[in-house]
Design a protein around this nucleic acid. Structure first.
Lengths: 332, 332
DNA sequence: CTGTTAGCGCTTTCAG
DNA sequence: CTGAAAGCGCTAACAG
């Protein structure tokens, strides 16, 4: 069933039906009602491929992230979806955690579809990707560290400063042998390491041996494992800055298993302020990142850039917030 | 830049370039190499909208779920992505947790795109949706309880039997005042309630007052909250069958906060066997659902159905597995 | 194996 | 406010 079928039944031309559907204002009220009724009755469904081809406007926003399936990204997705719903855009997600060549392939796929916008959770230093993003014929928002120059626009927080705040907090609470526990070393994690290192060096307390990392598909398990290794090799370690709250949760459990008192014997600070952090026992100190808002505003930036026709290299720093809780709550 | 541009530069006709790109076998090796080189040099990117329009084949698989952003769905997505990657399909996700009319809108959106397949995480009893799915001109896989008749195909587990197994386990361990703690009551949760109820009634131990539920956007917080309410109103409650592992985690934390011994004073059984269940202290007994495989095979079923042209009302029961752990490990 | 012709379903552009 | 004509970029179907 096509637009012409509807047009015939309504006694008008195809283009008028098209207008009644997309731009009701441009059709006389009477005709509009007739047409919309026929559309309804026939159960007509427009063909988006044809529409995209004819108008060179797909209404599609591509989201590309290596962490599509991470707990932290869930809130970002919620924000994205909420902002998209009232618009006439659609979102298509692609995970890019499968090596650089696949990443390029995914991006090409998006570009094949005349996207209305692109949201990219960056991997640093991939020139091919950077180039493609820079040339993309649509607004591009990078969800990343705001300290970097984006291809087009970016939104996020300053991860280095967030790490500094967390590390200072641990120092203030009197912890002295502070470890940093990590999953993979993506760009953000590296920025956090810089902040962590800078603050501890200033205090004369930085020990590179206390920076542990390991790839694992279970973050909670990783936390258990890393604490285990840490306490085995460095029994005097007295706190951990964990790169996400799942790791922090694993560390907490492992402390409980070993009978290590938290926060008295060992302090734990997480990152992201996921759901469970505030409800754990003890509750886990964490760095709150406005993830929902990052997703929401990323789409918003695309909508606005598309409307105004220019994006003006916008960089939005949404800021973070350290949330002190029981897991570090002892006298400094 | 279009196919014709490439064709001109390669000194062939457009259709030959088209074939070299999609069906290299059908073009002579020499010509193929020439063409692919020109494509590469020019950085030609095919227009998927035009392709979809001309071939009536979008290569798009729609995934619609009310839990796109739930922890349990993450593994399903991983399975989906892994199976899609080597194929020439693309996935588009839509969340459908925003009311029935929006759900229909989302589905229509997919249908507007000539999807190659549809994956639907079902909400029971929505006739409009059921109808649309039944009429859909493509393979449809429902991720749901396998006890139901699907519109086309379905894959999953039998939630009622899973709940029976979990409840029996709690009985075996000597728990007698067993509560069921729940988020929303979707279809699966209702099936689980049936199983829970049946087993307890058989033992003469079912008490409807011990079935608690509450909507909340924080599952861990919900677990804390529900345990709180449970112990306040029913101090003799001695175990909880939680509808997911996040709730179970909240219950565990709340028990710790109250000084309730787990598993001695209170038994906890979760559902899904999420990452953290096995690493908690004590580790949390849970029901393992093959979520990754459900996603993987769902796409596989679509691919096969598309290839064979028929789906034959396939229903695949992947089975579950009760994983007994510390949180219920006491002498019966 | 390669090319020609026609047309997918819609929208743009330009007339009325 | 409405319509006619043309064409978006690609591929099916047929021919050579």
């Amino acid at each position: 069933m096509t637009l012409s079928d509807v047009a015939r039944n309504a006694g008008v031309s195809a283009i008028t039906v098209s207008r009644a559907l997309r731009d009701p204002e441009k059709v006389s009220p009477h005709l509009r009602d007739t047409i919309l009724k026929v559309v309804e009755d026939m159960g007509y469904v427009p063909d988006l491929a044809a529409r995209a081809l004819a108008s060179k406007n797909s209404g599609l926003v591509g989201v590309m992230s290596p962490w599509l399936t991470s707990h932290a990204f869930i809130s970002v997705i919620r924000g994205i979806e909420d902002r998209v719903r009232p618009s006439d855009l659609r979102i298509q997600y692609a995970s890019s955690d499968t090596g650089p060549e696949d990443r390029v392939r995914q991006l090409r796929f998006f570009l094949s579809q005349n996207p209305a916008g692109l949201i990219h959770v960056g991997q640093a230093g991939d020139h091919v990707i950077d180039d493609l993003l820079r040339r993309a014929p649509c607004p591009v928002v990078e969800l990343m560290d705001v300290s970097q120059q984006p291809a087009d626009m970016s939104i996020g927080i300053d991860h280095r400063r967030a790490a500094e705040a967390a590390t200072r907090h641990l120092l203030q609470k009197g912890y002295r042998r502070i470890a940093m526990l990590n999953g993979g070393w993506d760009f953000r994690a590296q920025r956090r390491l810089e902040g962590f290192k800078a603050v501890l060096e200033e205090a004369g307390l930085f020990d590179p041996a206390l920076v542990l990392s390991l790839d694992s598909n279970s973050s909670v398990g990783l936390g258990c494992h890393l604490l285990d290794r840490l306490k085995r090799d460095f029994p005097d370690a007295d706190a951990a800055f964990c790169q996400n709250d799942d790791i922090a949760l694993g560390v907490l459990f492992e402390c409980q298993r070993r009978g290590l008192g938290v926060p008295s014997d060992f302090g734990i600070c997480g990152f992201n302020d996921l759901d469970h952090a505030g409800f754990a026992f003890p509750a886990i100190t964490s760095v709150r990142v406005p993830r929902y808002e990052i997703g929401y505003r990323a789409v918003d930036m695309i909508v606005r850039a598309a409307a105004s026709g220019s994006s003006a290299n916008k960089i939005v720093d949404l800021g973070f917030q350290l949330i002190p809780r029981g897991s570090t709550d002892r006298e400094g």
